[in-house]
Design a binder for these strands. Structure first.
Ligand SMILES: [Mn+2]
Ligand SMILES: [Mn+2]
Ligand SMILES: [Mn+2]
Ligand SMILES: [Mn+2]
Lengths: 218, 218
DNA sequence: CTTAATTTTTAGACAAAACTAAAAATTTGT
DNA sequence: ACAAATTTTTAGTTTTGTCTAAAAATTAAG
């Protein structure tokens, strides 16, 4: 399995998770930041290797084999992200780029020992679940912050958008995983919110509140 | 700089260190376990990028730029090997293969932080010096064990042959870095030696004693 | 239900990195 | 010095992964 094949598998896995339908070639190309013709080529190659099912003009779907491989790459990605933050003083907005490379290192022992070294973490620095050695992914109970009502309380458990820009914005607002969040006010006009994060009271836009996940506590 | 280019640079660097002469194409091919024609192709590409000087039929020599890049890769390789042994319970014969992959990860911050995390180690698990951030490589004072005379004493500081087979053999004899070694007897007939390693007295072949480095202590 | 817009695929090229086979240059042996 | 052996380079293919341009299929609009 080449680096490029693994990146495509991961992209297709994520797209399939979101929509639960066959993934269009264009969607793959967009996620991979490449051209549709390149995506078609790759999809054919992966189909040849039984990693996905592909029929021209209909989307593609991963086979169990393809899914299993994608999950392994995701496991590695998230374990490495955890290592970078926990042990090498990376911030949560810096890890993705490096993990994107580290996820392709081939060594079962390496990843098994890394998991052990980290103390078998359940989630990565963005709150995403780390698949176990058998490929099981725990489902994290979460709601998007925008859906909470006035007076509702919750704990921040993840983000939808893991872009560096958004994560840095959250840092500036002092919002991080595990923080207690309470909705003080919802503005009907633009769907912005006034929320209390731990001690601080701040206002956030609708766009931001749609990208923050919470576990409701009341 | 691609993965393959980096591996060639490293190979050429090592060959040039040994002989201090222009490196023949065949030597490169042999070290890279490839064909001479492939080596020629690559050498041309690297020459194009000013990483080495190449004139057909005369050997190649790295430019300062090429040398500096090779040393960076070696630094990464040795830091990762150290991490694998110190933190992930790898043995010294298992690390090379994985480090061969990890050495190509591109991230200045990653390697800087890894170095810090490890406590700025001076040598890797095989006793080889770890280049510093500026590319300086400490010269380790060492002598090949075979050269010691009867009654001489020393400390094991490295190996010449880092192959898994040889390292496992050393493990079986309970020889590792830092061990006190004393020459009890030298057999003129086949150049084998009887040595005392810490508590144990063992006999080793000429071939083995030529691949063990010691720092003489008496 | 046709035409227009969009999506997807095909065809043809290109760069990186490898290979085999053959030619050319260099070195060695007598 | 000349032939033989060795080393090195060239020429021509192959595979992976990308691209542009053009053709074909599908979907959307009037
Ligand atoms: Mn990746
Ligand atoms: Mn993540
Ligand atoms: Mn390598
Ligand atoms: Mn080493």
């Amino acid at each position: 399995m080449t680096l490029s094949e693994e990146n495509y598998l991961k992209a297709i896995f994520n797209l399939e998770e979101q929509t639960h339908k066959g993934v269009p070639t264009n969607a793959i190309a967009e996620m991979m930041e490449t051209k549709a013709s390149s995506a078609t080529d790759m999809v054919k190659r992966l189909s040849e290797k039984d990693l996905l099912k592909y029929k021209p003009y209909q989307g593609t779907r991963l086979t169990p084999k393809g899914k299993s491989h994608a999950v392994k790459v995701i496991r590695k990605h998230r374990l490495w992200e955890t290592f970078l933050v926990e042990n090498l003083d990376f911030t949560w907005d810096e890890v993705h780029e490096v993990a994107e490379q580290l996820e392709h290192i081939q060594s079962d022992k390496l990843i098994h020992q890394l998991d052990k070294f980290l103390g078998y973490p359940k989630t990565d620095p963005h709150g995403d679940p780390i698949p176990d050695e058998e490929g099981n992914i725990a489902k994290i109970e979460k709601k998007v912050l925008a859906e909470l009502q006035q007076e509702d309380e919750g704990v921040c458990v993840g983000v939808d958008d893991s872009s560096s820009a958004f994560l840095k914005y959250l840092d500036k607002l002092d919002i991080s995983l595990g923080n207690k969040i309470k909705v003080i006010e919802k503005e009907a006009f633009d769907n912005s919110m006034v929320i209390q994060v731990e001690e601080n009271t701040i206002s956030i836009s609708s766009l931001a509140s749609k990208n923050i996940y919470v576990r409701k506590t009341s």
